[in-house]
Amino acid sequence: MKTKVITSKDVHLFYGNFEALTGIDLDFNEHEITAMIGPSGCGKSTYLRILNRMNDLIPGVKITGDIRLEDQDIYAPDTDVVALRKRVGMVFQQPNPFPFSIYDNVVYGLRLAGVKDRTTLDAAVETSLKQAAIWDEVKDKLHDSALSLSGGQQQRVCIARVLAVQPEVILLDEPTSALDPISSTQIENMLLELRDQYTIIIVTHNMHQASRISDKTAFFLQGRLVEFDDTKKMFLTPKQKETEDYLSGRFG
């Protein structure tokens, strides 16, 4: 039995009057990759952004339910959001490196936490860029602007930037949808390497990607969680008719 890192029960989310999530129960195991799939607009990003409280930034959002990171209630009034986000890192759909050097991008989170020691920072840069499988490509130009890199390289720098903070959970919201197939494969392989050290939750529009890299898959439809199971089981023998229709490409 694997340890559960994140548990969520009866999660509802309202954008004003619109109920975007209608009661989600979903748990995530340690050192697994969980994929969230479903047609666009079904609430995948919305759910993902609940887990590091990024929805707090949107005015008029109301969230109910019980969402916990280990034993800590993420939405308890005394939760330190800044500390939470250090434990639950996020990679966005569009590569969004800061307009700084590659080095400054990777150490950004550490500097926020007050780390100043040069050797610590240097070491973190090397480790994180290696983990993100981009060290060899950028090791000679760490002080060039991160914006001079290709989209796929930028996305891997963004992943390194998250890894440098040493989070426990990494959320990825369609991290490869803006990238070419080769860059996508590189990122998929990297995520498989990272699985042993992190809990990874990835939203993907791409069912094949989900089947290639994930241990578990959650299928969302119109704000509901339709099915959640081992990826193999779900792709081979879906329990729900809607899942079967979606996987066989009948809609979405």
């Binding site: 590091n52 990024m54 930034l57 800044v82 500390a83 986000r85 250090k86 890192g89 996020m90 966005f92 569009q94 969004n96 490196p97 800061f98 307009p99 950004y108 989170g109 500097r111 926020l112 936490a113 963004c158 930037r161 998250v162 903070v165």
Partner: peptide, 20 residues
């Protein structure tokens, strides 16, 4: 998205303003 990236990395609002 610069602001979002900074906040998601555990930046406070003030850190985000001053550093990014």
């Amino acid at each position: 998205y610069y602001r979002e990236a900074s906040l998601a990395l555990g930046g406070t609002r003030w850190q985000t303003i001053s550093r990014v």
